[in-house]
């Protein structure tokens, strides 16, 4: 009888274990496909409180961040034939969705920002770091997800270990697809494009076609100061206008982004599945857009290339303002 009783207990325990395993598997699957996950700090070193002037700040848990990458490659995205690739990250921005205030902003990082970049070796493992411009972080790896992850790590480390929820990377071919997909984007041309794209008349406000958007966003040689900082000002203007155009397109057609993704997918790589992308765009489409910001700093000409050094105090204040809250 005793043995029988013990066996019954063991049996019930086994049933409960199987039930728990079933539920746990379901949770893991849901975590992978649903947006707005809790930011879980698996490494205490990466997400920690900060003390400034006697006040304690801890990372906000009500933010979702999406890293946008614009790479300078063209054509369909395929893995390179080596452990490196030729596509640098020309645009690196974070879309920061504040789920409490129902607003979002874009943090645009200068591609020439000097920081410790992870180096990916032959087998994709990190083999130390190199102190270089942010743009080259994407050159490590095959040019696909691994390169995006490398840039994500560089940006995350730069921002005090900020967890970045998703990334979305696109090459320059995507500019025209996105621009035309939303019906064109209206900008005011503030610089002289006469030597590069004469149809972009200085001082004129116009709705850009895909080709014009490409010239507007990419050109540096013979435009303005020829510096990346002036190009970033155009990125900011374009992004702010694009958000409005994107929203309008989404309002007219709820499945607009899914359709657009169909055209864009061969030029883009992301760690969101289409269902998540659709849910994100629906969830955040009514958030108030608070504009684009960039860290202050100094642009210096290095031995060969420009190097951007952010003002450390200003960067620290910006990180606290965007990603932390004061402990009460």
């Amino acid at each position: 009888m005793k043995t029988s009783h013990r066996n019954s207990i063991l049996f019930v325990a086994l049933i409960l274990l199987l039930a728990a395993l079933f539920v746990f598997s379901g949770v893991k699957i849901l975590e992978s496909v649903l947006p707005g996950r809790e930011i879980v700090a698996t490494d205490p070193q990466r997400v920690k409180t900060i003390i400034r002037e006697g006040k304690e700040y801890f990372p906000r848990q009500d933010l979702t961040t999406i890293m946008l990458l614009g790479t300078d490659g063209t054509g369909e995205l395929t893995a390179s034939n080596s452990y490196n690739n030729k596509a640098s990250a020309d645009l690196v921005a974070l879309m920061i969705f504040d789920e409490s205030a129902k607003e979002f902003r874009v943090l645009n990082l200068n591609r020439d920002t000097m920081m410790d970049i992870p180096v990916l070796g032959i087998n994709g493992k990190q083999a130390g770091t190199v102190y270089a411009q942010l743009a080259v972080s994407h050159n490590y790896g095959s040019g696909l997800g691994d390169s995006c992850e490398n840039t994500r790590k560089a940006v995350s480390d730069f921002l005090y270990g900020l967890p970045i929820d998703y990334y979305f990377a696109m090459n320059v071919d995507g500019i025209g697809i996105l621009n035309d997909g939303v019906g064109g984007v209206e900008v005011t041309v503030e610089e002289d494009f006469s030597q590069v794209a004469p149809e972009l008349k200085q001082g004129q406000t116009m709705v850009l076609t895909g080709e014009q958007a490409y010239a507007f966003l990419r050109s540096r040689m013979n435009v303005g100061s020829q510096l990346n900082t002036s190009r970033m000002a155009r990125h900011k203007q374009y992004l702010e206008a694009f958000v409005g155009a994107f929203r309008n397109a989404l309002t007219e057609d709820a499945s607009f982004f899914t359709t657009l993704w169909g055209e864009l997918s061969s030029r883009a790589v992301t760690d969101c599945n289409p269902m998540v992308m659709n849910q994100l765009s629906t969830q955040y489409k009514d958030y108030t857009f608070m504009g684009c910001i960039s860290p202050e700093g100094e642009n210096r000409l290095g031995q060969e290339f420009y190097e951007f050094y952010p003002d450390e105090e200003a960067l620290d204040a910006l990180i606290l303002e965007l990603f932390y809250q004061e402990k009460n």
């Binding site: 490196n84 640098s88 540096r220 040689m221 013979n222 000409l301 420009y306």
Partner: peptide, 9 residues
């Protein structure tokens, strides 16, 4: 004009 840095192979 100073060209943009790119990755080295």
């Amino acid at each position: 004009f100073v060209p943009s840095i790119g990755g080295k192979d």
